[in-house]
Every structure is written in C-alpha cells, then in structure tokens.
Design a protein around this nucleic acid. Structure first.
Length: 690
DNA sequence: ATCCCTGCTTTTTTT
DNA sequence: AAGCAGGGAT
C-alpha cells in the first residue's frame, strides 16, 4: 500500500485512511487532525471501496462529537444522504438501540426506563444504612466502577478489602435487583447489558456483527473495560476478520476516575497481534513554543507509546506565567488582560478561552467578567436537562412510558404536592414490597385499603388515573399510527398537572418565571422532535419514544449559532476543542495537580499525578497562538486564606529563558485600572448572557 | 406537611 | 462563605 499523501492529508494520515486490511490503531496527538482522518476514512470506504454506509459505525463519547462527525461526513460525501445511513453515535446510544431491539432476551420490557444518576442516588439511599451524602455518593461510585469493570456483585464481595467495600458490594447486589424490579437500567447498564447479551446469545451477536461490519472508535483511550469488551464482542468471532479503526491518545486519557483504562490501548496490541499502528505527530493547531511546553510536561509521564508533537506554524509568542495575590485578583486581572488584548488585536471575544480545573473556580471569573462587561459562555456547567423543573416533567413522561418506574412515580406523585406525603408513600412502599409489585400497581391492588385510609388513597388513585389516561392517549393508534399527536398529549399533561401554578406558588416570582420559561422551551423542543425533527428526517415519534431519547441527551448541544463571547470551560470539557488564546487559571499545587482523597492509598498517588499531568497537557494543547497561565499565592479555602504553591507543572514546562517573565507580573493600580475601564466604556458594548 | 433556624462540613472531573 | 442536614415549631 502506498504511503503517498492523498486527499490533502499527510503521510501517516492518508495511511490511516487507506488501511482497511485489518484492525488499526491510530495514535493521534492533540491537534493532529484526528477527526479529519475518521471522516475522510468513512468517505473513502463508501465512495472508493463500495462499503454500504449502513454497515459502518463510528462510536464517540459525547453527543456533540457524534453530531459533528456525522455533519462533517455529510458535507464530504457526494451523496450527503448516505451519512444518515451511518451509525454515528455514542457508546451509550448504541447500547440503547441494542437494548430496545433485544430487550426480550434480557427479560426487559421494551418500555424500560433509563435512570439518571440522581435517581440512582436515591435508590442507593434507600438501600444504604447511612444518610451521609458523601458515603452514598461513594457507594454509587463503587457500583459504577464495578459495572464498568464488569465485576459482578459476588466478585466485588469476594475482593472487598474493607468493611466499607463489603458494604458497597452487598448494596450493589440489591441495587441490581431493584433496577430489574423497576424494569429500569442505569447509565452503565447501557453498555454492560449488551455485553452480557452478546456473551450469552451468539445468534444475536451474529446479527449485530452482520449489521455493523466496520467499527470506528473515537477517543479510544477513554474506553473502560466494559466498553472494550463490547467492541471485542462486536468485531471478533464467528469467522469474522476483525475490522475496526481505534483512534486515541494515551497522553489525553483524563477519565480514569470514571473507569476508563488507557491500558486498553496496549491491550489492543495483545488481543489483535496484527494490529496496524499509525502515529499522527504533526500538529496543525499550535505554535512550536506551545507544543514544546506540552511535550516537556508530558515527558514526565511513563510512556505507553513514544510520540512527539511538532508543527510548522512558527515559533509563536512566549508563554506567560502570572502570579496573583488571590483569586479575586486573578479573575480580575485575566479579565483585564483579555479585554486589553481584545482591543489591541481587534480580536473577537470568542477567540479567548479561560480554562480551569474545577467548576467552582468559574464563579469568581464570572463575576469579574460581568463587572467588566465582557460576554461569556460557560460550557460544562449544569445542563439544561439537569434542572429540577425539567426533571419534574420528565418524571411524568417516564411514568407514562413505564408505570413500574418507582423513582419517577415518587417524584411525579409528590410534585406538585397533591396530598401524597411521606407516610402515605411509606405505607404504599411496604405494601408493594410485600407483594413484589411496583408502587403504581400497588395503588390498584386488592388489599391496599387495609393499609391506607380513604383520605390517603384517593389522591393516589386520582394521580394514577391521570397518568393512565394520558398513557392510553399516547399509545392509541392515531393519525400517524403511533398514537395521538405528541404535542397534544404534552399540552394535556401540562394542563392536567398544574405545573405553572405550582411554580408560582412555591417559588419567588422571578425564579418561577424562569423555571416556567425553561419548561415551555423543553416542551416545545419535545414537540419539535415528535414531529420528526427539524430536518424532517427522523421518523415521527410518540411521547413514549421521546422520553427514552431524552434520557440520553444530557447535554443540549449545538442550539444556536455561537455568540461572540469568551469561552469558559473546565479542562475536561475543553478536550477536543481549540482556541486562539488560552488562559489557564489556578495552576497551583492542590488545584492543578488536584489534591485527591487524603484517604486514598499511597500507591495510587503516582497514577493520580500522571492523570493530572495529562490534564495539564490537554489544557496547554488547546491553545493555538498564545497561552497564559496564572496562579494565586493565597486562596480562600473554607474560612481563611491559605498559602498556595505554584504548580510543579510550571517548572516541568521548561520555559525558555525570557519566556517566563520574572514571576511578579505588575498588578494594575486602581488608577490604571480606571483608565482601562474608561477605555472599555468608550468601546461598543456587548450584552452579557442572562 | 412545611418552614425556618442553627450548626456543621467542605474532591474534582461526566456519559 | 456557603450550602446542607437535622431538629423544632407551626
């Protein structure tokens, strides 16, 4: 096979695109044109090699990445319609698709519910003895890691080192049982259950292998054991030659804390001895200085694969390090530096990004940007779907789809208040436990009058009848064949639950207004999807089908065109993105190598630091042209100010002499600041987001 | 059942 | 400093 560059790609890139003789691993450094390779490869397979687009699947970790990839392939194909036949989705969406079709093999009804982590939290809360929030979250975390590691409750119990772990393991067992009783799955099950299915049912596995013959896996270093197992099950066996391309970068593995193991990269070589290894080392994003710093930092990690980024974009401007007296000053100074630079260089606001380790750091920065009247957008914060008012509505929808969904039942039945209280629910709960049925069923079960008085029973029955009525409307054969118009059912739901009234009753005028606004937006968005989406591509969906879709959409992506505003983001959320000018704040010991759990075993400390270092590496490599780092000498923590040390990663960057201006950067005096303010005020104003 | 006050805690990242 | 859990009062 020729290595001659094609498609306007460099040598290794086109090699990665053209190689279709077997499994391939593309080690793609930051900014090395990874997405370009994937999209080009898909195009090449369809147009030059005659692959049926329906047999190609590309798996990503975020909906955003999937959307972008599909879009880009669509633009490259001569027949853009073919892009719609591709399977481009997240691991979790693929899991849902598989479970939907094969649920009968798993003893799951097709209207299973998908529980979000809040629901799972309350589930664990009921199973655990303590009420300690941190402990419960810890148990939840343990369970998630076990699921992602394909560890059964029995194994977990055997391996338990401490009593706490044994406790978690026992809860893990009943947790799985409870979910099964609810006919519900959690996030991790979306991968785990398909794995079980494929392991136990060769015919089903064979069917999906025939359907998806070629797999592309993005961000492979972020896969966990369970996801890798799914990949293996899909590409091997039954006389099939493994055909896939995994794309990843061990230096950007930053999701170890949720079970991802970058050892999967090395395992790939073991499991597929004829694995073709291709390295992409030319960077098309950043200046040499930035890459030099990135390389220098990451060199301190033991390497799985040797890799050095380089670019032809010139040496670039020096990287600057500023020390600040405290976090308020830091935020203010960054805001001032950005606005000064913005006017000097006549840049767009959107050319700047402020990156930080933890979400809480965003607060001070937001304040500073607001007082400076600089527009900004925050990514990685609370998502639209996590808002309480949206979850309330969702609880009703989920209950319509699956009356056995007890968490949804509890939430919907008690919001808005309708005379169903704790004691009522407890009686109902123990009754349902005794008869092994869901809360919903229990309401109509004979003998319930014995444990609940008429006064308590009546509101429950009214509530259930309300849900049943809507449910029958949603599934009744309608004009489209799949039930009443989703919009109509939604309208009736909104009216019947009196949610608006409840909001104004329970909250301040202003809060209620904004919450109701969110609800309306959400409902309209649902109606839109029910009609088959904006581009009238997808099929018309009824309300029940919509709810399963929503469960996965944790982030409302690509709403409007991006406004001209500074981007604020956590380092994690910034992966995959790039900005001309990057400010990385809070580069301190304890924050950027984040101080982990003090109780964590010492031997894992090194690994933690390595992951933090990769996080630093990700941050540096987001920058295209300039990079500035700030750290605080003092920071408010808890009650008092605490001394901070500059991050060890700064020293590791080995900045050229002269690159790092002597630590003390001038702090603008109030008078100078006033001058800058005046300058700002005379400039055209931008309106801040609400 | 809900509201308000007091007192105590406080690891971050997210499909 | 702030958010949250728990307890006491209405």
């Amino acid at each position: 096979m020729s290595n001659a560059p094609q498609f306007g790609l460099n040598g290794p890139q086109s090699e990665a695109v053209l190689y279709l003789d077997g499994p391939a691993l593309v080690l793609a450094g930051a900014g090395s044109g990874k997405t370009r390779v994937i999209t080009q490869k898909i195009t090449h397979m369809i147009e030059d090699r005659g692959y049926d687009p329906r047999t190609i699947a590309a798996l990503t970790f975020t909906n955003k990445a999937a959307l972008e990839m599909q879009e880009r392939v669509g633009k490259m194909l001569k027949q853009p319609k073919q892009a719609k036949q591709l399977t481009v989705c997240t691991f979790h969406s693929l899991g849902v698709r598989i479970l939907r079709q094969e649920c009968n093999h798993l003893g799951l009804k097709d209207r299973f519910s998908i529980m979000d982590s809040d629901d799972c939290y309350s589930l664990v809360q009921d199973l655990a003895i303590t009420t300690d929030k941190n402990v419960i979250r810890g148990i939840q975390n343990d369970i998630s890691l076990w699921k992602n590691g394909l560890v059964t409750p029995e194994d977990a119990l055997k391996q338990a080192q401490t009593e706490d772990e044994a406790q978690s393991a026992r809860i893990y067992g009943s947790y799985i049982a409870t979910l099964a009783a609810y006919q519900a799955v959690d996030f991790d099950d979306l991968i785990r259950l398909p794995v079980e299915l494929f392991r136990n049912h060769d015919t089903v596995r064979d069917k999906w292998q025939r359907r998806l013959r070629y797999l592309m896996i993005d961000e492979y270093q972020d896969t966990n054991t369970c996801q890798y197992e799914l990949v293996k099950l899909m590409v091997t066996g039954l006389g099939k030659k493994p055909m896939f391309t995994a794309v990843g970068d061990d230096d950007q593995a930053i999701y170890g804390w949720r079970g991802a193991t970058m050892e999967n990269l090395a395992l790939l070589q073991v499991d597929f001895p004829d694995l073709k290894l291709i390295k992409l080392e030319q960077n098309y994003r950043s200046t040499s200085r930035i890459l030099q710093a990135a390389n220098a930092v990451i060199q301190n990690n033991p390497k799985l694969f040797e890799k050095t980024l380089w670019s032809e974009l010139g040496i670039g401007e020096p990287i600057k390090v500023h020390s600040m007296p405290n976090e308020e000053q830091e935020a203010e100074q960054v805001a001032i530096m950005i606005s000064a630079d913005h006017f000097e260089r006549k840049n767009k606001w959107a050319d700047y990004a402020i990156l930080y380790r933890g979400n809480h750091q965003a607060r001070v920065i937001e304040q500073a940007l607001r007082t400076q009247r600089i527009p900004y957008t925050i990514s990685g914060g609370q998502s639209f779907f996590d808002k309480a008012e949206i979850k309330d509505i969702m609880a009703y929808l989920r209950l319509m789809a699956n009356p056995d969904d007890d968490p949804a039942f509890i939430r919907a039945a008690t919001t808005p208040r309708r005379g169903i209280g704790q004691s009522t629910l407890e009686a109902l709960g123990s009754f349902s436990g005794k008869w092994q049925c869901s809360l919903f069923e229990a309401v109509f079960k004979g003998g319930i009058e014995a444990v609940l008085q008429e006064r308590q029973l009546k509101p429950l029955q009214d509530f259930c009848n309300f849900i049943l009525e809507l449910e029958s409307r949603a599934t009744r054969p309608g004009p489209s064949g799949s039930g009443d118009n989703a919009a109509q059912v939604l309208d009736d739901l909104m009216e019947g639950m009196h949610y608006e009234h409840y909001l104004y009753d329970a909250f301040e005028e202003r809060a209620a207004q904004s919450k109701w606004q969110n609800v309306l937006e959400f409902v309209n968005w649902l109606k839109e999807r029910g009609r088959g989406g904006k581009d009238r591509d997808g099929e018309e969906k009824n309300v029940l089908e919509l709810t399963q879709m929503v469960a996965l959409m944790s982030m409302l992506e690509g709403k409007d065109e991006e406004p001209d505003a500074i981007r604020m983001s956590t380092l994690h959320a910034s992966k995959g993105l790039e900005y001309p000018h990057v400010f990385l704040v809070g580069v301190e010991e304890g924050i950027l190598p984040h101080k982990g759990d003090p109780d964590a075993p010492v031997e894992t400390l090194g690994q933690r630091i390595e992951e933090e270092r990769r996080l630093m590496y990700v941050g540096i490599t987001r920058a295209q042209r300039t990079l500035q780092l700030t750290w605080c000498k003092k920071r408010k923590r808890g009650g008092e100010h605490v001394q901070c040390d500059v991050s060890r990663f700064i020293a590791e960057m080995a900045l050229d002499v002269g690159d790092a201006p002597p630590k003390e950067t001038e702090i603008l005096s109030p008078r100078e600041r006033l001058a800058r303010m005046k300058e700002l005020l005379s400039a055209p104003r931008d309106v801040n987001p609400a």
